[in-house]
């Protein structure tokens, strides 16, 4: 847990809750309800932030180190799936760079144990949706990564910023006069 950047700042706003009148029982109930939901929100959000085994910062790599998405997600422009990089790719740099950062220390622990980092996928389709998504044709159509994945360049640990539904896919297909045949994706 320690040293991992939080995915998103959680605003609790206790001040506004305190401003509520506490004289009546009803008011007290409202306050506790508000605090409870805020607490729940905090739990849920920190849980999603801590899902990844390492608090990989996208923004540090993209904004500060000027890397491209496809440097690590190699298949994004040429293959079906964008893919997650092997630990070997991380270690190409991190054998030498920023070796004392706590997250990089955690990375080298995996490396020394000869394990891959068990990254959690945050995007993907449910098996029951029977969707066959292909990255390459979307890249050829010059759809920016951010259109479907949000502004990852400013994220630390990537969060699911865009929800993929059939509605959003179809809308984009229609806007770009791409096919809206069901068979284009479901087979």
């Amino acid at each position: 847990m320690k040293g991992r950047p939080a995915a998103r700042a959680v605003r609790l706003e206790p001040a506004s809750a305190a401003r509520l009148s506490c004289t009546s029982l009803w008011g007290e109930f409202l306050v506790s309800l508000a605090m409870l939901s805020a607490l729940l929100l905090l739990v849920v959000q920190t849980a999603s932030a801590s899902e990844q085994p390492i608090g990989f910062s996208h923004t540090a790599h993209i904004e500060k180190a000027s890397m491209q998405c496809t440097d690590c997600h190699e298949g994004a422009t040429s293959r079906d799936s964008a893919g997650l990089p092997s630990i070997r790719k991380c270690m190409l740099c991190h054998q030498f760079i920023a070796t004392d950062l706590p997250e990089v220390v955690r990375l080298s622990e995996y490396w020394e144990r000869k394990h891959e980092v068990p990254w959690e996928r945050i995007y993907g389709f449910a098996k029951t949706a029977a969707v066959q998504f292909r990255h390459a044709p979307h890249a050829r159509a010059e759809i920016a990564c951010s259109q479907c994945h949000g502004d990852v360049a400013s994220m630390t640990v990537a969060v699911k910023a865009v929800t993929h539904t059939m509605g959003s896919c179809i809308q984009c297909h229609r806007d770009n006069s791409a096919t809206d045949d069901c068979l284009a994706c479901h087979f």
């Binding site: 949706a129 029977a130 045949d181 069901c182 068979l183 479901h186």
Partner: peptide
């Protein structure tokens, strides 16, 4: 199940 523009008789499983 329907016929698409390429003449394929399509079966959409999740439908």
């Amino acid at each position: 199940t329907y016929q698409n523009a390429e003449g394929l008789n399509v079966q959409i499983y999740n439908r």
